[in-house]
């Protein structure tokens, strides 16, 4: 098997040790932030702030 699909598109070969997915890390940290904020909003504002609290 060839390492990449089409050599023409590959400007440079990047091996395992020289690749740090820092862009991925940034994107995933942004996602983490969105998830956390949205969760807090949904749970504490939309749900706990809603009418007719179900109790024991």
């Amino acid at each position: 098997m060839v390492p990449t699909m089409s050599g023409e598109n590959t400007v440079r070969e990047i091996g395992h040790d020289e690749f740090d997915p820092k862009g991925t890390l940034v994107l995933i940290l942004v996602y983490f932030g969105v998830l956390s904020v949205m969760w807090v909003f949904m749970y504490f504002v939309e749900f706990l702030g809603n009418d007719l609290t179900v109790l024991v």
Binding site: T4, N9, T10, V11, R12, E13, I14, F19, P21, K22, G23, T24, V26, L27
Partner: peptide, 13 residues
């Protein structure tokens, strides 16, 4: 991202 960098992509994003 690995694909993008092999295709010449640069920068944080």
């Amino acid at each position: 991202e690995h694909g993008a960098r092999q295709r010449g992509g640069t920068g944080l994003l």
